[in-house]
Amino acid sequence: MKPFVFFDLGQTLVSEWDFIDHFDQKFLELLNGFGARIDMKNYRAVRDSIIRDRKIGHGSVRELTIEVCGAVLPSGYGEPIVRRMDHAVKEGRRTLFRFADGAEQTLKQLSEKCELGIIANQSEDIVALLQSSGLDGYFRVKTISGAVGLKKPDPEIFALALKEAGRGAKDCIMVGDRLDTDICPANRLGMKTVRVTDSLFALQEPREQCEQAKATVSKLTQVPAAVDKMTG
């Protein structure tokens, strides 16, 4: 039986660097409009510290926005700025998300020896990117939080994906960028894990044994070689 490889989407299969630049610019403009008086270098230092210290928990853009506001503005500005950022975030997701360099090559190479799936914390709009890319056909299982009402690191979203794949955890590999939502929960279930560090979440450092990935790669295109070593 072929091994089953599950992928995270954001900052793993999907490159978000253009979106992050777009978000940072819009957010910085708003922060300074509300009186923050901070430049991009210092904003990014605050942002990176929040990610490194895991102050956003398992969240992402909304939680990050609130934490940065709390660090550089008086209290009470977080929610208004989240609302003001909503259009820029949605537009950026729609126009700037793209599959990472080498994604098709990686999926084609893996599909020759493995079955493929997705376990991702994303809203359902990500389906349009999957379909328009023509890469959705590589995935037998697509477990997306916005569609199933569960979010990583909840073990139930992994259990749902495993059930749909018809596999036990020990026969599966999880590929993702976050130690807290990808690597740790997959390891705890008995899956093998590959961490991709082409991500803002490369700032995370392991805090417990379950956050130690079996393999770590710097680029998506290195995933097939890592999977070969695990399954060969």
Score class of each variant (00 low, 15 high):
His22Lys: 04
Leu116Tyr: 15
Asn42Ile: 13
His58Lys: 12
Leu30Val: 10
Ser133Gln: 05
Val61Gln: 10
Cys114Trp: 06
Ile38Ala: 04
Met85Leu: 13
Asp24Trp: 04
Glu16Ser: 02
His22Gly: 07
Gln25Glu: 10
Pro80Trp: 14
Cys69Phe: 01
Ser111Gly: 14
Thr106Trp: 00
Gly57Ala: 06
Gln25Trp: 15
Pro74Ala: 03
Ile51His: 01
Gln131Ser: 13
Arg62Phe: 08
Met40Ala: 14
Val61Thr: 08
His22Ala: 03
Lys113Ile: 05
Gln105Tyr: 11
Asp53Met: 05
Phe27Asn: 06
Ser132Phe: 10
Glu29Gly: 14
Ile126Asn: 08
Val89Cys: 00
Ala103Gly: 03
Gly92Thr: 12
Lys113Phe: 14
Pro80Asn: 02
Ile51Thr: 08
Val14Tyr: 09
Asn121Ala: 01
Arg52Asp: 12
Ala36Pro: 07
Ala71Asn: 08
Leu28Glu: 06
Lys41Ala: 15
Met85Ile: 02
Gln25Met: 08
Lys41Pro: 05
Phe19Gln: 01
Leu64Met: 02
Thr95Pro: 10
Val141Ser: 05
Arg84Cys: 13
Arg62Val: 12
Tyr43Cys: 02
Pro74Ile: 03
Leu135Gln: 08
Leu107Gly: 11
Ser123Tyr: 12
Arg84Met: 08
Arg52His: 10
Pro74Ser: 03
Pro74Lys: 13
Arg94Thr: 11
Ser133Pro: 05
Glu91Arg: 14
Tyr77Val: 08
Ala36Lys: 07
Gly92Tyr: 14
Glu67Pro: 06
Leu30Gln: 15
Gly92Glu: 02
Ile50Cys: 08
Ala128Asp: 05
Ile126Glu: 02
Phe99Pro: 06
Lys90Asp: 14
Ser133Ile: 08
Met85Ser: 03
Gln105Leu: 14
Ser132Val: 14
Ser15Met: 06
Lys90Met: 07
Ile81Ser: 10
Arg140Thr: 10
Arg94His: 11
Ala88Ser: 11
Phe27Trp: 01
Ile20Ser: 00
Asp39Trp: 01
Asp21Cys: 11
Leu129Gln: 02
Thr106Met: 02
Ala45Ile: 04
Glu91Ile: 11
His87Val: 13
Gly78Met: 04
Asp39Glu: 14
Phe19Thr: 00
Arg84Tyr: 09
